[in-house]
Structure formats: C-alpha cells, structure tokens
Amino acid sequence: MSAILLAEQVLNGLQSGMMLFLTAAGLTLIFGVMGLINLAHGSLYMVGAFAAAAVAAYTGSFLLALAASIAAAAAAGALVEVLVIRRLYARDHLDQVLATFALILIFSEGTRWIYGSFPLFLNIPPYLSGPITLPGGIQYPLYRLTIIGVGLAVALGLYGLITHTKLGIRIRAGENDREMISALGVDIGKLYTIIFALGAALAGLAGALVGAIQSVQVGMGEPVLILAFVVIVIGGIGSIKGALVGALLVGLTDTLGPLFLPCLFGLFLEPASAATIGASLASMLIYILMAAILVWRPSGLYGVRA
C-alpha cells in the first residue's frame, strides 16, 4: 500500500467525517437542549438536497442552491417544531420516536408526491470540479477539499456562536436547566424553535453538499441518520465538540476499515474469502468502535450527563 493511497484515504475519511459532523451537530444540539430524539433529522437533510437540486435546475447557480438548501431546511425545521415537535417535549422518548418516525414517512411520500420517484440531478459547479494536485503528488478532488473547508468553517462558527454570543449562552443554559432560564424571562419556546431551525439548516446544508456528489433521491437521509446517531453517542450527547470528534472518528474508521481489513485477512486467508470477510467486518467496524467507547466511557467521549 502506497503512502499516496493512504494519504488520499485519510483525506476521504476527514471529508466524510465533516459531512457527518454537519448532520450530527444539529441532532446533538436538539437532543442536548430539548431532550428530544428526532428521527426526522434525516428528512431535513433530504429537504435540503431536494431544495438545492430544484434551485440549481432553475437558476443554474450552485451558491444559490446552497442558500436555498439552508433556507428550506430551516423553514421546514421551524414549521415542524411549531406544529408537531413542540407537543412532544413533555412526553417520553417512545412517543417522540413514534411521532418523528411518522414525520419521516410524511416527508418521504410528500417529496415523492412533489418530485416523483426518479432521482434528481445536482452536480458540482465547474469551478469546483476535477482533481487538483496536492503536495506529494496526491490527486484529490477539489470539491471534497472544499467540503472539508466548509465543515471546519461551520465547526468554528458553531464554537463562536455557543461560547461568544447571547444565543449561545441561552443554549448552554437551556442544556443545564431549562426551568431556571424560563424563570429568568427567556422565551424558551422561541429558543427551542431557533435551535431546531439551526439544526435543520445544518442538516440541509449537508444534504445539498453531499447531494452534488451522490444521488438526490427519496430516502437518502435515513442511512445518514443512523451514522449521525452513532456519532453523537460516541461523542457524548449534547456536546458539539463531541460531535466533531465523533464524526471524524467515524469517518476515518469507515473509510480506512474497508481498506485495511481485507489486506489484514489477506495475510492468512485466500483473496476471495479475505475480501468477503474483510468487507463484512468493515461494515461492522463503526458499531464495534461505538461499543468499545461506551464500555470505556458510558456517556460518550465528551458527555456531560451520566
């Protein structure tokens, strides 16, 4: 295995981790502040991708498409929070899971009703397409580097928001003691709507960014949702820092596992069965990682709640 291949795979792991972070950050915020399990987070990711594809087809501008994905997902998030989610905070987690699962079905069939069953077209803009040569002779797609950059920017932005703004203070306060901050005169309902819309907007942005290199279709959010839950459990529920570290861990494991495991098994098995067993074990690897971390730290890497 060459150093170039390894370096490229590490970049791939970082990139997929950054995309996971965008989805997981919203999920962990919503869970941390409101104590809500939102299964429909993947649907907001899908809404972002579809909005981006529609706007890109209409205007031809990728930046407008990204803006539309953020706006549409935030609007859908705020709407859902006001109409449905608001009634669920006081209920137990089973009710939340049932209601947000129903939202997945409504979003999926609603999207199919509007856009049809065939995947939509959304492509990388010409100025971001093609590979560039990095130091060391690594050929790497510019778009994926851009994604890493966007992910880092969002992580920094969220850090600034949470630690240095009034909204961030309220979010942190909401996580710690929501009765107390509502007693201090903070409109907790409005705060929840804003947080929900913010989480949705991040998911929508991720959906649009990923949609350009994957396929924009109904049901695209559910596989991501599962990974995002793994990320926030690893990182510790409610912690943005945990979401970032967890996302990068999952991204790197998921990328490097399928590369190394078949080679590893190839040392003592014949190639065909090494490939099969390696591939099967590689797809379990992130769950093994999650289990190991939970044994070591039951509330996740940066979890605050016991």
């Binding site: 291949l5 795979q9 791939n12 997929s16 290199i213 990328t255 065909a272």
Partner: peptide, 21 residues
C-alpha cells in the same frame, strides 16, 4: 482488484482511491 462494497453505500471515495492505486 476485487471489491465488495456495502449495500446502499453512497460514498465511493475510498474505492476510487483504490482503483487509482
């Protein structure tokens, strides 16, 4: 090379890197 990918996988960056190498 011969690879088995995950069913439903959407990101092939890792496989593409292996094809390149």
């Amino acid at each position: 090379g011969e690879l088995l990918t995950k069913l439903g996988q959407t990101d092939y960056a890792s496989e593409i890197a292996q094809i390149r190498a």
